[in-house]
Amino acid sequence: MQEKTSAILVQNGGTIKMTLDQLKENESGNIKQINDEDLAIQLLSMGFTLGGEVKIERIAPLKDPILITSGTNYISIRNSDAKKIELIV
């Protein structure tokens, strides 16, 4: 995890960029932006908001998909989509 973060750190020229797929079970963060318009609209309509909290509830036994929550909104998404969800660091 540590190494991964530092690799990203270098890639982005000093700014830390964190996406949802990098969190572990029971970890949470706040959504900064979603880099896919369709996915963003879908998540917003399912109770997730920009700036709002998102928590990894469970990672499927085969590491994908994952269950995420925000308040009482509770959905599953694939890792490929989680990668598009940027978190506030």
């Binding site: 998540l43 998909p65 269950l67 509770y74 599953s76």
Partner: peptide, 10 residues
């Protein structure tokens, strides 16, 4: 695109 964005109902 293939997605699996599915609500987990109570």
């Amino acid at each position: 695109k293939s997605t699996f964005t599915l609500e987990m109902p109570i």
